[in-house]
């Protein structure tokens, strides 16, 4: 039963990650790409780690994975914000009327 629930979580995370990689190639607009890449990759990471934690139950292994999850949830938005800020202040502009994406 535990294994089944964990497999379901991992499959959900694989769907998220595949959609994220697809979105990185599908959008022509840089800021759309950075949005898709940031939140779908974080969601995929959370679901995969939740699946592994469910598989192992309460143990030291799960505690270490929980520490990794906390670090990634804190740091990943900072990195994405830094890339977006660097692109905006570096002079990379897109059109205001461009609604095609």
């Amino acid at each position: 039963m535990k294994i089944l629930i964990s497999n379901i979580f991992i499959i959900i995370s694989l769907v998220f990650i595949t959609l994220g990689v697809f979105g990185v190639f599908r959008y022509k607009n840089f800021y759309s790409r950075i949005l898709i890449a940031s939140y779908i990759d974080t969601a995929g990471f959370l679901f995969m780690m939740a699946g592994i934690i469910i598989r192992f139950g309460v143990s030291w292994f799960s505690a270490k994975i929980l520490l990794i999850v906390v670090i990634v949830v804190l740091i990943n938005p900072v990195v994405t914000h830094s890339i977006g800020r660097s692109a905006y202040h570096g002079g990379y502009r897109i059109d205001k009327e461009d609604n095609s994406d």
Partner: peptide
């Protein structure tokens, strides 16, 4: 491929970030 063909340097940075998080998942797996 996105890192290689990315037209600007920010696309390459975005691809680098994605590769880093995927390698993190792979090490855990």
């Amino acid at each position: 491929i996105r890192i290689i063909i990315g037209p600007t340097i920010w696309d390459r940075l975005l691809g680098y970030n994605l590769v880093m998080s995927k390698i993190l998942m792979l090490i855990v797996l």
